[in-house]
Structure formats: structure tokens, C-alpha cells
Write a protein that binds this DNA or RNA. Structure first.
Length: 198
DNA sequence: CCATTAAATGGCC
DNA sequence: GGCCATTTAATGG
């Protein structure tokens, strides 16, 4: 996890429960809290002009939720929507700042975390600008697998639906379904019971 | 069982 | 590749 649970609690973080479809925060609102997922799953999304959903990230246990907004004076550019029952630690911005001031190694850890995120944003952007669906999809899959301790082929189960994958790369479900099957024939991944293993 | 949701297919542009 | 319709498979009450 990004920040030690006990440290967060000692600065006054409170745990809050959420059920699927609940909103943690809305696009356009002012960031006032640091959020860290204890368990469950949250997506960051945005709806473009055509009403099509764009998913910017799907976050799970241990991840913070859009923490970068606590360092700049901007509104949230995305919604945070719960997609699997969640427990979240919530720490007011002022307490978060106090915690950083008093814990310099923590500041460095957060720098590292933010840098890594930004780095992957470059990679993802490069992939998503490809005209090839295979490149875009593999880009997302490789990104998720990069967090897995086991890097063996077909060892990582992708916990994303085809629809979510599609919304992450700006393509349609049908395209994802067909491309994933094509990738299976190329031995880039494996499909078992509809689940993708890479 | 039935309802719901996800995955898969095929036709057409 | 997208869009639409339809079928198939899996899941949960």
C-alpha cells in the first residue's frame, strides 16, 4: 500500500464503507481528502461528449485515489465510482499535509509513487495512440501484470471485463473480444472460462 | 427455475 | 473498427 494504515489512523483517518455504484467524489468537485482503498475496487471515469465512458484507471486495495489533486489547486477531472464493495480510509487534506511535513521519508515515497504513475501514463498514452487494437489492449494488460509478483506467462488473471477494457482504450467491446481472441491464437495470452490470463 | 450480466458471433456499413 | 441484433455461458437469488 502507499501509506501505512496505522500512520494514516494516527493522523485521524476514518474508515468509510461504500457499495457498488456509490460515488466517492464527482468530476468538478474540490479535492478535500486523501483516500486510500483498504479493500474493494474503484474506477476513475469521465464521459465524453458522445456520452461514451472513458475509464482512466481501475484501483484496488492499497492504492490511493487521485492523490495528486492534493498537491495542486484544481478540481477533480474525473469521477470516482465504486465498482466492488469498498472500505476506504479518508484523511482531511490539512491532516494529510501535516503528516507529510512531519514524515520526510513518506514524502519521498509519495514522490516515487507519483513518478511511477506518470511514467506509466506515458507508456499508456503511446500505446493508446496506436492504430492497432492489439497494441492498445496489450498495453493495458501488461500494465496490470506489472504489479504482479509472478511474471510467468499465463500466470496473471486479468480482473477486468471486456467492456472495462474497451472503455480504457476507447474502443468497442466487440473489438476487444475479437482482438483478445486473436491474441490468444498468437499465444500472447490465454482464455479460460472467459477470463484472460497473461 | 428465471433474471441479469458478460462473452461471443455474424451481418452490414 | 463501429453498430446492431442475437445467441450462448455463467452467476446468483
Amino acid at each position: 500500500m502507499l501509506i501505512d494504515t496505522d500512520l494514516l489512523l494516527s493522523y485521524g483517518a476514518k474508515e468509510q464503507s461504500f457499495t457498488p455504484l456509490e460515488i466517492v467524489f464527482n468530476e468538478g468537485s474540490t479535492p478535500r481528502y486523501y483516500y486510500q482503498i483498504v479493500n474493494g475496487k474503484i474506477k476513475l471515469n469521465h464521459y465524453n461528449g458522445d456520452g461514451k465512458e472513458l475509464i482512466l484507471a481501475i484501483l484496488t486495495s492499497g492504492f490511493s485515489v487521485c492523490e495528486l489533486l492534493l498537491f495542486i489547486d484544481k478540481k477533480y477531472p474525473v469521477n470516482a465510482v465504486v465498482i466492488e464493495e469498498c472500505k476506504i480510509l479518508k484523511l482531511p487534506k490539512t491532516d494529510f499535509e501535516k503528516m507529510l511535513d512531519e514524515n520526510h521519508t513518506l514524502s519521498r515515497d509519495i514522490n516515487k509513487f507519483l513518478s511511477e504513475r506518470l511514467y506509466y501514463k506515458y507508456i499508456m498514452l503511446e500505446n493508446n495512440l496506436s492504430t492497432h487494437a492489439e497494441v492498445r489492449i496489450l498495453g493495458v494488460l501488461d500494465y496490470y501484470k506489472s504489479f504482479s509478483p509472478n511474471q510467468t506467462l499465463y500466470s496473471y488473471e486479468v480482473l477486468l471485463t471486456r467492456q472495462q477494457l474497451a472503455s480504457m482504450i476507447g474502443m468497442r467491446v466487440e473489438t476487444v473480444i475479437r482482438t483478445v481472441k486473436k491474441l490468444e491464437k498468437q499465444n500472447k495470452l490465454e482464455i479460460r472460462r472467459g477470463k484472460i490470463y497473461i
